[in-house]
Design a protein around this nucleic acid. Structure first.
Lengths: 240, 240
DNA sequence: ATCGGCTGTTGTATGCACGCCACAGGTGGT
DNA sequence: ACCACCTGTGGCGTGCATACAACAGCCGAT
């Protein structure tokens, strides 16, 4: 959910500095940051680890320091949909602050990931004292809502190619970097094709076919774990 | 978003009483309710009136008093998706409280509708003074998020019949009433089939066919603007 | 009233996008 | 160098959208 790109990786910063530079804490008072920092628990999770389970109350607010975490809805039959893909600086588990409702999605690491946890009671106490954080948390939620609405409307109104386009653009804007030399955006490491398929609500085979077609048409070029998105793709950001 | 069912219709209550009994204001102090009430503007809108336009900042928080309002994402080509359908007691336009982000959906009346508006500046001032409302507003948003996530995952993972089932159940639980005599839930007035189609991301014809099939199998029975959903349908509320 | 048009609702055929199965390379990680 | 996990491709079945057609209620116009 973040566009900031700190010069030092988050996992090597002090806990205080880390908190101070991520939403929703950027406007919190210093003493509040210190109170929070004292309770933060950091840990490293292997790939495919479930951190929060759907419909259960999360035990705190989590911050992704390194790696990637997917927010997922699963159906019986093994199929599922990745609703959001979170990278360094993003937070999840906000619903621990809202009493009475469990988490709406399952959070599972896509790769080996470093995370930080702020215990639920510590966060709640902080929110009661500092409404700046509360407002910013609400802003985060409204951005997330808008994103999920885009996913939903895309599924209903667009074909696979269009959905894939938008997903790649979103990923590039958040995690990629612009490269004038290659006149495009570099996206690395690219998620696997089956992961992309679970993001756009399709199957691996179709994603493979569609990506090849887009590469043929000069919209992108991929090699190994790198992908370069042409400027043509990045143009349209308005999304139904 | 509400399950309360007041004995008196909202549009006939005093503004103060009306505010006091809807979320997110149920925990607001009395003097705050009065301050808000002084600025509330009520109005009646004909069917198909656009109240809030996507990507534009709403001019206030709206309350549905009577009728129905759809939150919609439109694509070029006339096709669109109804993400949420709001009835009496529901609110929309929360994003007027979050600076910097426009509305994520267009709000349009489905039928002739009475609404009340709380101007954006009055609401913001109130939120700064009373964090109870802020917290409840956040809870509303998280419920909405969860609902939209259900829509998205349904579109990706379920066929039309299953999506229609869930949509009907949602509508019945929110607006319908239980009738032991008919051993089922009475849903009246039912949205038109084309409206249902826009809710489940399908087309009018398919909805018609699917409803007939469900009626044949005894899952529901419909006559005119009334529909009775059998207990069988209402059972499963857990949703991927 | 009567007529015509308009809007909303339901039913039936055709075509296509895309999901599923199967198999063959290719690639990265340890 | 191995093995597990990716990726590319062909074929096939089908759910569902597109399109066409028919009918009922509603309203204003004459």
């Amino acid at each position: 959910m973040e566009s900031r790109r700190p010069s030092i990786p988050l996992e090597r910063m002090s806990v205080e500095d880390m908190l101070a530079c991520i939403e929703p804490f950027t406007a919190a008072r210093n003493e509040e940051i210190e109170v929070l920092a004292r309770s933060v628990v950091r840990s490293r999770k292997p790939s495919q680890t479930v951190i929060i389970r759907e419909s259960q109350q999360p035990d705190g607010l989590y911050v992704v320091l390194r790696g990637r975490v997917n927010l997922v809805r699963a159906a019986d039959g093994g199929r599922d949909l990745i609703l959001t893909s979170l990278g360094p600086g993003d937070v999840f588990g906000e619903s621990c602050a809202v009493e009475g409702v469990g988490a709406s999605t399952t959070a599972v690491t896509a790769v080996a990931t470093d995370i930080a946890r702020i215990p639920a009671d510590v966060l709640s106490a902080h929110l009661r004292r500092d409404s700046n954080t509360l407002v910013r948390l609400m802003k985060l939620m409204s951005e997330k809502l808008s994103e999920v609405e885009s996913v939903a409307s895309g599924l209903a109104l667009c074909d696979v190619e269009e959905r894939l386009r938008r997903t790649l653009v979103r990923l590039a804007k958040r995690q990629g970097r612009h490269s004038p030399a290659d006149e495009g955006w570099i996206l690395a490491p690219v998620p696997t094709q089956s992961e992309l398929a679970r993001m756009v609500g399709s199957c691996r085979e179709t994603v493979s076919r569609t990506l090849s077609a887009m590469a043929r048409n000069g919209l992108l070029s991929s090699s190994g774990r790198r992908m370069i998105l042409g400027e043509t793709l990045m143009g349209n950001s308005a999304a139904p």
